[in-house]
Nucleic acid binder design. Sequence first.
DNA 1: ATTCTTACA
DNA 2: TGTAAGAA
Length: 173
Amino acid sequence: MADQREQNEIDDPVISIGILAQKVGLSVSAVRKYESAGLLVAHRTPSGRRLFSHEDISRVSNIHRMIQDLGLNVEGIRRMQALLPCWDLRPCSDEIRDTCPAYNDNTRPCWMVKGLHCAPQGNECRQCVVYRFGSLCTQDIKSLLYDQNGAQDTGVAMQELLQRRRHSKEKES
DNA sequence: ATTCTTACA
DNA sequence: TGTAAGAA
């Protein structure tokens, strides 16, 4: 039917770690390592199995590329992602921001920090704009963050994120 | 059969 | 980075 949920959204977790590893060309243990290093947030089934989305395929591919082609390492990538302006992509009050352990940590991305106002359960980071934005900031964070044209070839999802950000900027002025 | 964690080379 | 054990 027309109203029936089309199989999968880009971000819902339907892929096992084995399939993901196969698609990206990595070993399963390497994927687990990315996750434990904080580069990935895996969805867990009730039984504890990891599930990934189609968006995660590009995320992991990009990580792989940064390591293989650009010479970055896992540490460097995490620190790069730790600098994403979460307070801007997902606005919070000055009060909360200034006392936020994620805002005051420049070595770990916010999704690695527990007990945040924006993630009380800690399980919703996969859906968060900050986490998803970071997944595509491979070649050039600056253009994605600050240049509207930077979103042109990075897909619909990122364009939406940038638009949302633009609108919140307009409200300020 | 596949994946989990932990440990080890 | 990869492999192995033992459980689920």
